[in-house]
C-alpha cells in the first residue's frame, strides 16, 4: 500500500441503522475506517457487534443509513454488491469452509470465478467494439491462465501458513485451527482491501487459538486494513490502533487501546472491563 493511500477513508457509515422488527440493533452509527487501520470492536453479547460488521459488506441489509466503501454507497440497491464484496474479505466464527470443495478449491473458487467473469466481460466489450470497428482492448489472459495463476497464488498462501500438505484434503478432515487459517487465506486470495473478522477464535479449542491469532497479527504487520470483533482483550490491546466499545446498538466509547483499557471514561465501559479483564 502506498504511503499516500494510507489514512484515506476506506469505509464510512452514515446513520447506519438496523432493526429486526421492533428491535433496534444498530442505532444511527457514524463511523470511519481508514486505510491501514486495525480496529477492534468489543462489547457485551447482543450489543450489535456482529451486526455492525456484517452490515459493512451488506451481509445484512441496513434498515436505514449508508455504508460508503471507497465512496460507493453499498446500501444503494442499484449498486452491484458482488463486485464490491470481492474487495472485502470476511472471516467467520464458524470458519464456513466449503464442505464440498478441497482446501485448494476453497481458496481458488472465488478468484477463478471473478477472473473468468472479468474475461467474459472484456470479450463481450470487444465484440461490440469490433462491430463498431473501433480498436479492441487487449486480452492478456486466458481461462487456463486465470486458473494457473489462482492455483499458484493459493499454493503460495498455503505454504505461507504451512498447510501445503492439506491442499487436496476436504475441510471435514481438518482441525478447527487449520480450518480458520485456511478461511483467512481464502479471503486473502482475493487481495481484499479490508478484512473483517467476527470472533475468529471463539469456536476454537484453547490450544488452537494461538496459531490463528498469530496469523492475524502477522497479517496486521503487512499493513492490511482490519476490523476485528473479538472477546480476546489482550489480543485487541496488542493489535488494534483503535478500539470501539459497542453497547446497546451504539458505539458508546472509543479510543486507542491505552485509552479504552487503561483510562475508560464511561461507567458502562468500566463495568464491562471489570467483567472481562
Amino acid at each position: 500500500m502506498s504511503v499516500t493511500e494510507k489514512g484515506k477513508v476506506l469505509i464510512e457509515t452514515k446513520g447506519l441503522t438496523k432493526c429486526y422488527g421492533t428491535l433496534t440493533v444498530l442505532d444511527h452509527i457514524d463511523e470511519v475506517i481508514r486505510n491501514g487501520e486495525k480496529v477492534a470492536i468489543i462489547g457485551p453479547s447482543g450489543s450489535g457487534k456482529s451486526t455492525f460488521l456484517r452490515c459493512l459488506n451488506c451481509m445484512e441489509d441496513p434498515t436505514a443509513g449508508s455504508i460508503y466503501f471507497e465512496g460507493v454507497d453499498l446500501a444503494d440497491m442499484h449498486v452491484n454488491i458482488n463486485t464490491h464484496r470481492e474487495h472485502i474479505g470476511m472471516v467467520f466464527q464458524q470458519f464456513n469452509l466449503f464442505n464440498n470443495k478441497t482446501v485448494l478449491q476453497n481458496i481458488m473458487l472465488a478468484p477463478v470465478y471473478v477472473g473468468i467473469r472479468n474475461l467474459r466481460r472484456l470479450k463481450w466489450k470487444n465484440f461490440w467494439l469490433k462491430l463498431a470497428r473501433k480498436p479492441l482492448l487487449p486480452v492478456e489472459t486466458s481461462k487456463a491462465g486465470i486458473v494457473a495463476s489462482a492455483r499458484a497464488k493459493a499454493e503460495e498462501l498455503l505454504s505461507r501458513i504451512g498447510l501445503s500438505d492439506k491442499a487436496d484434503k476436504y475441510p471435514s478432515t481438518l482441525s478447527g485451527g487449520q480450518k480458520q487459517r485456511i478461511a483467512i487465506v481464502r479471503a486473502l486470495a482475493m487481495n481484499p482491501k479490508v478484512m473483517l473478522f467476527d470472533e475468529p477464535t471463539s469456536a476454537l479449542d484453547p490450544e488452537m487459538v494461538g496459531e490463528v491469532l498469530d496469523l492475524i497479527k502477522q497479517l496486521a504487520t503487512t499493513g492490511m486494513t482490519m476490523v476485528i470483533v473479538t472477546h480476546e482483550m489482550g489480543f485487541a490491546r496488542e493489535v488494534a490502533d483503535r478500539v470501539l466499545f459497542m453497547e446497546g446498538g451504539v458505539i458508546a466509547e472509543q479510543g486507542t487501546p491505552d485509552e479504552v483499557f487503561n483510562h475508560p471514561k464511561s461507567e458502562r465501559l468500566k463495568n464491562f472491563l471489570s467483567k472481562v479483564l
Binding site: 458482488n82 464484496r85 470476511m90 464456513n96 473458487l109 470465478y113 471473478v114 479471503a187 482475493m190
Partner: peptide
C-alpha cells in the same frame, strides 16, 4: 448450513452461482 451460503456470498459470488 446457512454459513455455506454466507461464505460464498462474502467472497463475491452472486446468489445463483
Amino acid at each position: 448450513d446457512p454459513g455455506q451460503m454466507e461464505a460464498a456470498r462474502a467472497v463475491g459470488l452472486p446468489f445463483p452461482v
